[in-house]
Write a protein that binds this DNA or RNA. Structure first.
Length: 224
DNA sequence: GGGAGGGTCAAGCATTACTG
DNA sequence: CAGTAATGCTTGACCCTCCC
């Protein structure tokens, strides 16, 4: 049972797909049926929701406003359903988390496993993507919160928590620095090195340690 | 039975990409 | 550059289901 009208479902599908045809394929109905709903709504609202372009439909400002609100209403309805369950004494809920690949294993994965074990009634939906995609999902209310790198570089998002991550260096056992107890950036500067893509390591805007390595571009290779 | 709402199908039109 | 195919939106005609 959904409190959202056909129009809301169709509108959201077109907004996501950017095309009537693709939305129609996704919803398994004809494009003309969706088009009628949208045209009818635009007439009622007195404002166009989409721009008709050769390559498909693009949301107007009014359309974007409606889409944002629709996502928020859907999220709030989920919370309402949870509150209904609580009223009936049911303990149930779901949390959607977006996270970068780097966190999908190790201590964070172990912590998630603990949560799943401790609260078996809780449904966890995990989405793995790059930082930019995760932050977009948070903006669009597609996930409840995200775990990303470079959170301070994402405009329009609230950073609820922040942790410093230790940086590691891997090298062959026969490398002269392999036995060193500690390394500084200066120790590494004269060696050829490989760094991950910028999006994967950028921890804070400006002043991060790896930025210093960019002083030696001739000795650097970047992973794609 | 008839109206309303919502669906499909087919045709038309516009734009873009491809091809000779 | 013109012809053609592909893609996508719109519209008209018609059908089905539900409700009064």
């Amino acid at each position: 049972m959904s409190p959202f009208s056909r129009f809301a479902i169709y509108f959201a599908a077109v907004a996501r797909c950017g095309s009537l045809r693709r939305a129609a394929e996704k919803l398994h109905i004809s494009a003309s049926a969706i088009n009628r709903q949208i045209l009818q709504a635009e007439e009622e609202f007195g404002t166009p929701l989409f721009e008709r372009l050769p390559e498909g439909l693009r949301m107007t400002t009014a359309g974007e406003l409606l889409y944002d609100n629709l996502l928020r209403w859907q999220k709030e309805f989920q919370l309402t359903r949870q509150q209904f369950d609580e009223l009936q004494g049911l303990k149930r809920g779901s949390v959607s988390i977006g996270m970068v690949q780097a966190l999908a294993e190790g201590s964070f994965a172990a912590a998630l496993a603990d949560i799943i074990t401790s609260w078996q009634w809780l449904e966890l939906n995990l989405r793995v993507a790059d930082s930019h995609a995760v932050s977009e999902k948070v903006r669009q209310a597609d996930v409840d919160f995200g775990l990303i790198l470079d959170p301070e570089g994402q405009a329009g998002l609230s950073v609820l928590a922040f942790v410093e991550l230790a940086m590691g260096v891997v090298m062959r056992p026969d490398c002269p620095l392999a036995q060193a107890a500690a390394l500084s950036l200066g120790d590494l500067s004269h060696l050829r090195h490989i760094v991950p893509r910028r999006a994967a390591y950028r921890a804070r805007p400006g002043g991060d340690a790896l930025s210093a390595l960019r002083l030696f571009p001739g000795k650097q290779h970047q992973l794609q």
